[in-house]
Write a protein that binds this DNA or RNA. Structure first.
Length: 342
RNA sequence: UCGCGUGAUAGAUGA
C-alpha cells in the first residue's frame, strides 16, 4: 500500500494529477497517508477545489490533514478561509500557525503576522524561522535578529535564514561575524554570502567562500558566475559558464542571458533564449529588457507581444525602454494600457 | 517502536 502512496506522490510531483487520482482510487484500504498525499498532489498543482474535496471526503482527519487544509487556503491567498479552518481545527499545530504567519507577511501585513505569532504558545523551530524569514522579507533585520536570539533552539535553516537577511542587507561586517559564528557552513549559507560579496565587489572573498563548499551546484555556480560577471572578471565568468553548459535550470540560463545583454551582446542573449531548455516569465522579461537596453525597440516590442504572460516588470521594462529612447508618446500609450491589479 | 503525508532558509528580470 505504501508503494502506491509513493506512486501517487510521484505523479503529483510530476504534475500529473489525473494519474495520481487514478492510482489513489485503486488503493484499498486507504490510510491517512494515502488521503493526505492525494490532497498534497492537488495542492501542489494549484487545484484548490479538488484538494478541499479530498479533505472533505476523508474518513478521519489528523493534525497533518488540518495543517494541510490551512496551508492550502493560506498559499492560495484565501486568508479568511484559512483562519476559519484554523479556528475550527481541533489542535493549533505550529504548522498551521506557520502557514498563516507566512501568508500574512507575504501580503504585506508584517505586524499582523507578528501579533499572531506572539499569540502562539507552543512555537517550534520552524514557526520561529518562518517569523524570522518574514522579517527578512521586509528587510527588518532587527526583528529577524531578535526572533533568532529568542528562539530556544536553532537549526541550520534558522542560521541560514538570518545569514540571508544579513546578506540582503549588505552589512558585510555583521554578515562576516555571523558567518564565523555558524556551527555549519552548508551550500545555502555559502551561496547567500557569495551573492552579497559579489554585490559588494569583494571577489577574492567570494572565491574563498566558493572554495569552502564541498560541492558546487547550479545554484552556487550561478551566484559565483554573477559575482564574476558583474565585477568584470569575464574570463572567470566564462569558465563557470562552460561548466554549466548542460544545465537544465532556467535560472542558470536566464542569468547568462542577462549578463550577455548587459555586456552589449544581445545576439548571444537571443541565442541563449532560443536554445535554453525552458523559459518562464522572468526569462521573457529579461529578454525584453536585453533588447530594450540595447536599443532594439522593435525586437523588444515583438518579444513582448509574444509573451505567454506579462507582469508589472514586463510593462515597466517596455515603457522605460521607450521613454529612454525618446518615444515618449509610445511610452505613455504602454503605460496607459496597463491594467490595474497585478 | 519504526517506515510513506503538512509549515521555514541560498542563485536569475524592471523602478
Amino acid at each position: 500500500r505504501y508503494l502506491s502512496n509513493l506512486l501517487v506522490q510521484m505523479y503529483g510531483k510530476c504534475g500529473n494529477v489525473d494519474q495520481a487520482r487514478r492510482v489513489f482510487e485503486t488503493i484499498q484500504p486507504k490510510n491517512t497517508f494515502s488521503w493526505s498525499i492525494m490532497m498534497g498532489a492537488f495542492t501542489l498543482n494549484g487545484h484548490v477545489h479538488d484538494a478541499k474535496a479530498v479533505f472533505d471526503a476523508m474518513p478521519s482527519r489528523d493534525v497533518v490533514a488540518w495543517n494541510a487544509l490551512v496551508g492550502l487556503f493560506a498559499r492560495a491567498g484565501m486568508l479568511e478561509s484559512a483562519k476559519m479552518v484554523f479556528d475550527k481545527s481541533p489542535g493549533w499545530d505550529p504548522a498551521s500557525w506557520s502557514s498563516l504567519v507566512m501568508e500574512l507577511a507575504q501580503k504585506g501585513h508584517l505586524d499582523e503576522a507578528k501579533s499572531l505569532f506572539d499569540r502562539c504558545l507552543h512555537k517550534d523551530v520552524i514557526l520561529n524561522t518562518a517569523m524570522l524569514t518574514a522579517f527578512v522579507q521586509h528587510r527588518r533585520i532587527d526583528g529577524a535578529k531578535s526572533v533568532f536570539d529568542l528562539m530556544p533552539q536553532r537549526n541550520v535553516v534558522s542560521w541560514n535564514a538570518l545569514i540571508s537577511g544579513f546578506a540582503k542587507g549588505g552589512n558585510l561586517k555583521h554578515l562576516r561575524e555571523l558567518f564565523d559564528r555558524m556551527p555549519h557552513w552548508d551550500s545555502v549559507a555559502c551561496t547567500a554570502v557569495i551573492a552579497a560579496l559579489g554585490n559588494a565587489g569583494r571577489i577574492e572573498e567570494a572565491e574563498l567562500v566558493y572554495g569552502l563548499m564541498a560541492e558546487q551546484s547550479d545554484v552556487s555556480c550561478t551566484a559565483m558566475f554573477l559575482a564574476y560577471a558583474e565585477n568584470e572578471h569575464l574570463e572567470d565568468a566564462e569558465r563557470i559558464f562552460s561548466g554549466l553548459k548542460h544545465s537544465k535550470d532556467v535560472v542558470v540560463w536566464t542569468a547568462m542571458l542577462v549578463v550577455y545583454g548587459q555586456k552589449g551582446f544581445v545576439e548571444s542573449s537571443q541565442k541563449i533564449f532560443r536554445c535554453m531548455p525552458t523559459r518562464n516569465l522572468v526569462t521573457w522579461n529579461a529578454m525584453v529588457q536585453a533588447y530594450a537596453e540595447n536599443g532594439n525597440l522593435d525586437l523588444a516590442h515583438a518579444a513582448f507581444h509574444r509573451m505567454p504572460a506579462t507582469d508589472v516588470v514586463s510593462w515597466n521594462a517596455l515603457s522605460t525602454a521607450l521613454a529612454m529612447n525618446g518615444e515618449i508618446d509610445a511610452a505613455w500609450d504602454v503605460f496607459d494600457s496597463v491594467r490595474p491589479e497585478k
